[in-house]
């Protein structure tokens, strides 16, 4: 706020901002509200219950799907984050910036169904080629590389999450001064030591946020996973097929709420922890730096 700004308009603008956030969240909050109602959606009487949540944990199919989803999300994160880090480092030094940015960010601009369809046909063809080569030269281990399944779903999710992780990491790296790496090299550090000792500690919050971001995106993704997954089920595919088959059941409200709670809690914690931490560290240092307190 500027010194002569009008506090009323300033407050109104804040109010508007929070209102929009609430508006965006309102369907989710409404679903959560319904999920605690014993009588379900549209009922005249609201009776609080946790029963619908208990039902989820007895649902075998759901639990299997959840474990597949977690495996897939973590595998996605383990590959997406190193790739994005490499890409961000490459972007900083390369002269072909336009091409790099274009290639890494364009998956954002290709919608889930289009990318999913293209990858589906690509993997079906690739699988055909690999099986053919495997048959012809009897290299059996080649044969099922790109059969629809975990690998193909994983690749689809990596492509989907790389742009987000790349942007988050790149923005964090933007605040890092390259001279520090040079200083470390001048102190005798190898390129790798300079990265782990000097650069990484400073971009760590960004990398961790990117990790959480990637896991949640991969966990939540429906279309690409559904097209590329082959045999197994994930959380979203179970949820959607239940919704489409039986309509919105009370149990599906509870499942949606639960997953939303967890995602919001993770991101909320990250936001609060990383930001508070950096604040408190800065504050403690400031106290330490007060003249007199540490002066020799």
């Amino acid at each position: 706020m500027t010194e002569y700004g009008n506090p009323v308009t300033y407050g109104l603008k804040w109010l508007y901002l929070l209102l929009i956030v609430c508006l965006l969240m309102s369907p989710v909050f409404y679903v959560m509200y319904i999920s605690f109602n014993e009588n379900g959606f549209g009922a005249r009487h609201y009776v609080f219950t946790l029963d619908w949540y208990k039902v989820i944990f007895t649902d075998r199919q759901m639990l299997t799907a959840l474990s597949w989803t977690m495996k897939l999300s973590i595998a996605t994160m383990l590959i997406t984050i190193p790739l994005s880090l490499l890409a961000a480092k490459y972007y900083k030094t390369t002269r072909h910036k336009v091409l790099t940015v274009f290639l890494l960010l364009s998956p954002l601009f290709v919608s889930s169904d289009i990318m999913g369809s293209a990858l589906l046909v690509f993997f079906k063809n690739l699988n055909g080629v690999f099986t053919f080569v495997g048959d012809k030269y009897s290299i059996l281990w080649l044969q099922s590389w790109f059969e629809l399944g975990f690998t193909t779903a994983l690749i689809g999710l990596i492509i989907y999450t790389i742009p987000y992780a790349f942007i988050v990491i790149l923005i964090t790296m933007g605040r890092y001064r390259q001279q520090q790496t040079e200083a470390a090299r001048a102190c005798g550090a190898t390129g790798w030591q300079a990265f782990t000792d000097i650069e990484f500690p400073q971009i760590r919050p960004g990398v961790f946020s990117a990790c959480a971001f990637t896991i949640i995106l991969a966990f939540n993704e429906y279309t690409r996973t559904n097209l590329l997954k082959g045999g197994f089920d994930t959380f979203t595919t179970v949820l959607v097929s239940e919704m489409l088959n039986t309509g919105m059941s009370e149990q599906s409200y509870a499942m949606s709420s639960l997953v939303s709670f967890i995602a919001i809690a993770i991101i909320g914690t990250i936001i609060i922890v990383t930001l508070l931490k950096s604040d408190s560290i800065a504050q403690r240092e400031r106290v330490k730096a007060e003249p007199g307190s540490n002066e020799s």
């Binding site: 429906y222 919704m243 599906s252 949606s256």
Partner: peptide, 14 residues
């Protein structure tokens, strides 16, 4: 980011 962290499937169905 918060609304974005809830699955699009859920947000649309909701």
């Amino acid at each position: 980011i918060l609304p974005f962290m809830v699955s699009e499937t859920i947000r649309v169905f909701a």
